[in-house]
Nucleic acid binder design. Structure first.
Lengths: 110, 110
DNA sequence: TAATAAATTCTACAAATCAGAACATTATAT
DNA sequence: ATATAATGTTCTGATTTGTAGAATTTATTA
């Protein structure tokens, strides 16, 4: 595995992990992506991506305490690492620069 | 073809096409991505993506006039369509909302 | 202990991206 | 006119990223 760039879903999930702190786990991430981003995604995709992000050291995880709910496995809680945050920032600032550039050149995109 | 979302490179190239108007063609896009985004990419990827973006109607293209240069094929010039612009805007506004959320929750990401 | 709920892990597949070779077109030099 | 060099595009196959659903694990309640 090379892991050269941050894919489209990888970036969204990384952002969502940050945005959901400290309760970021797969089902909550799915809900957030669906509701706030209109981004359909199945649970297993989220797990796949989270695992890849953890390999890249952009997130870290631990198991949550058992809560007095209905039952089921313990949550695996994720949080973003400084490296992950930096990766997001780098992407954002560069994309924003292109945006600025584009708007100067074509303020009316019709 | 499903074309459900805008991939990571698709988004960058679409943005670059806008940012380079009216001289957006593959070699110029490669240069821009390399220099402004530190995004390495080979020429053929750019052509592949441009072709996909054209199928999605996010860009349109025409051949450039023959310029008095050293020689070679005519440039295929791309420009972003209103649909393409809207797609970029939608993505940006949603991502920005997640960013705002994340920064409120964790202003110090260490 | 059986049933149910919640969540994660596994397995196979599809789409996006990468990489480099092959090809086509135009201009200049001979 | 023909060969050569420059410029860009298209083709083919491999790798990475994303999708989908079944299977499994763990905990609670009847």
């Amino acid at each position: 595995m090379r892991g050269e760039h941050l894919g489209e879903l990888e970036e969204l999930i990384l952002l969502t992990v940050g945005s959901l702190y400290p309760e970021a786990y797969a089902p909550a991430i799915k809900k957030e992506l669906t509701e706030k981003m209109d981004r359909k995604v199945v649970m297993s995709s989220i797990h796949t991506v989270l695992s890849r992000l953890e390999n890249k050291q952009f997130v870290k995880s631990k198991f949550g305490e058992s809560t007095p709910e209905r039952g089921g496995k313990r949550k695996r809680l994720f949080e973003i690492t400084p490296q992950g945050f930096q990766a997001l920032e780098a992407l954002k600032s560069k994309r924003d620069a292109l945006w600025t550039n584009m708007l100067q050149i074509m303020p009316n995109p019709s």
